[in-house]
Design a protein around this nucleic acid. Structure first.
Lengths: 218, 218
DNA sequence: AATAATTTTTAGTCTTGTCTAAAAATATTA
DNA sequence: TAATATTTTTAGACAAGACTAAAAATTATT
């Protein structure tokens, strides 16, 4: 059994592993978890002891397959709870993160299986992130940042990179939602902003926005 | 904000307060929480500091109205989660306690309000215990232990005293459920067992059983 | 390659919540 | 009421998880 703290480390390392393929550095973990490098070193040793990750001094860490499975399971719980909160309890997609962060640590296999069934075995969470299956596999769909699309290319909005509530609320305000079609009409070299068409409207979006919206090209 | 541990102490003291009216003893709390008296003394001091209970050395403790409110709120969450697990997630009434014990500590006002609404604002949990309202008030219905009924008296089964899964499973096996009518047909002086009628069946129940079933007399 | 800068680890401290053992207070009994 | 038993508190220790400050290792720079 793992503590909430241990689970949070595993989750953070799992997320970092999907970005960089190399050993995950102490500092990167510390930054992700808003903690200090020395705390990370302590915890890493403990987790290496439990054989959920491999650690060699000064070389960073990588998860074992056991560690990956545990991490994926926590992410599975987090994302299923997010779907539950939005679908069944009238939460907005910008309100779910903190609560899911707590709920993901509840220990009960039956609980999460039943939530999964109640929701009809969803494949994606409210932010478009895939929900790992019970074995820890998660299917990666082909998606590109809006900022990488060329003029006249179009696709479906399938996810967000940044899930901060300020960004999500901005999208709500602009009536940009997952599932909608987006076409790039113009790109501005000067500030890398672009003009897009969405819902029969034209909209100018900054580079920062375009760098945080995932599109499935068609 | 209170830690899970602090919340558990408050809840335990609240429960003990409903039984005895006097100051709650250190030992009683220790027994209830499966901990040691010395640990209780430490925690009690901390909670007195936070003004959720009144403590005088060697005199036991009693909750302040603030403390009562917090405790009732945790019990509210616990019982609402139990209803949710049974009503929405196919849990049996003997499976809910441990999970609710975890879920009751989740911090989110919206979460529990929405669960409450989803369930249609239930007044009782699956074991017949009343659910406190948001202000911490809980209505006490008139109920008597089955063992106190006289021959020929009858009433509705409205709750259990012991909610251990072994007792609850026993009731399931005997097809005794909340809401059913029970009539006392005979009482046996020798071992204080009784013969009851329930669901058009006659059943002999031991004194231990009769001491753990609540009846609302009619 | 030597020095400087950065990262990582170690050593020691702190807090929370627990424990054991002993001391102090209260309660019980002869 | 004096002796005994029980309860409660204190004192000191421990584990988990975090921190700071300093040492050690690695990486970058001149």
């Amino acid at each position: 059994m793992f503590t909430s703290s241990e689970e949070n480390y595993l989750k953070a390392i799992f997320h970092l592993s999907t970005v960089s393929v190399k050993g995950i550095s102490t500092n990167a973990i510390a930054k992700k978890l808003n903690t200090k490098a020395s705390s990370v070193t302590d915890m890493i040793k403990k987790l290496a002891e439990k054989e959920v990750l491999v650690y060699k001094k000064y070389q960073g860490v990588s998860l074992t397959s056991e560690g990956r499975k545990i991490a994926a399971n926590i992410i599975r719980k987090h994302r299923l709870w997010e779907v539950f909160l939005v679908e069944k309890l009238n939460f907005n997609w910008d309100e779910v993160h903190d609560v899911a962060e707590q709920l993901e640590h509840i220990k009960s296999a039956k609980l999460i299986d039943e939530i999964d069934a109640l929701l009809g075995f969803p494949k994606y969470d409210p932010h478009g992130d895939p929900i790992p299956d019970k074995d820890g596999n998660l299917d990666q769909i082909e998606k590109s940042l809006l900022s990488t699309l060329l003029v006249n290319e179009s696709g479906i909005c399938v996810g967000v990179n940044d899930s901060s509530s300020s960004f999500l609320q901005f999208l709500d305000k602009q009536k940009i939602a997952l599932g909608q079609e987006i076409t790039v009409l113009e790109k501005e070299d000067f500030d890398d902003s672009m003009i897009i068409e969405i819902n029969e409207r034209q909209l100018s979006v900054s580079n920062k926005i375009a760098n945080n919206l995932y599109i499935q090209k068609k």
